[in-house]
């Protein structure tokens, strides 16, 4: 490779890994907490933290999106074929879309009856009211299946990064670790 394409900034890298950790944590906590027994000491606290971190993730994702729109993102590696470049781009956008879809549907479950979402005990995110019938149930289904979809796609995303690193021996993974 003669010329190195524009890579990721520290901001992008930190945001990427922070979001990765939060998404995995939210998925794991969500998967676990729906089956908690009523007498578990986590029955009330787990959803509280899940929702609070979810709202924090929304703020981070909005900042990330704004950053990406204003500053642009890394250029694809020129060693990648056009098909790979396109597939990566579509995957990245779908990951973004699914994260927003999951956050929005989560918000709609908890606010379906007009109650706000308490965020870290610091402030309340107000409800927009019941926007459609059977809101909590329908939003709940979207939340659940979009989360499975996101994790499946994230596994593919990680597998692709590892494939590029170990088999193609290119910079795909390394440039997401250091600018």
């Amino acid at each position: 490779m003669a010329t190195e394409n524009k890579g990721y900034s520290w901001t992008s890298i930190v945001l990427h890994w922070l979001v990765a950790v939060m998404v995995i944590g939210l998925f794991a906590s969500g998967f676990w907490m729906v089956d908690l027994s009523y007498y578990s000491s986590w029955y009330r606290t787990a959803p509280f933290w899940h929702k609070s971190v979810g709202v924090l993730l929304l703020a981070l994702m909005l900042y990330r999106l704004l950053f990406r729109v204003i500053k642009g993102t890394a250029e694809p590696l020129s060693s990648h074929s056009k098909a790979i470049q396109r597939a990566s781009h579509v995957t990245h956008l779908t990951l973004y879309g699914l994260v927003f879809l999951i956050i929005c549907s989560g918000y709609l479950i908890s606010t379906a009856d007009g109650r706000p979402i308490e965020v870290f005990g610091l402030f309340n995110l107000p409800s927009a009211g019941e926007l459609f019938a059977e809101q909590a149930d329908r939003a709940g289904l979207v939340h659940e299946f979009a989360a499975y979809g996101l994790i499946a796609l994230a596994v593919l995303h990680a597998a692709a990064a590892l494939k590029h690193h170990f088999f193609d021996k290119d910079n795909t993974l390394k440039r997401m670790l250091k600018p």
């Binding site: 479950i109 908890s110 606010t111 379906a112 009856d113 109650r115 809101q135 909590a136 149930d137 709940g140």
Partner: peptide, 16 residues
Amino acid sequence: TKSIDSNHAERDKHLR
């Protein structure tokens, strides 16, 4: 039965 209403959307979702 879907019309159960305990004045709490998250609880009603669980009750359904």
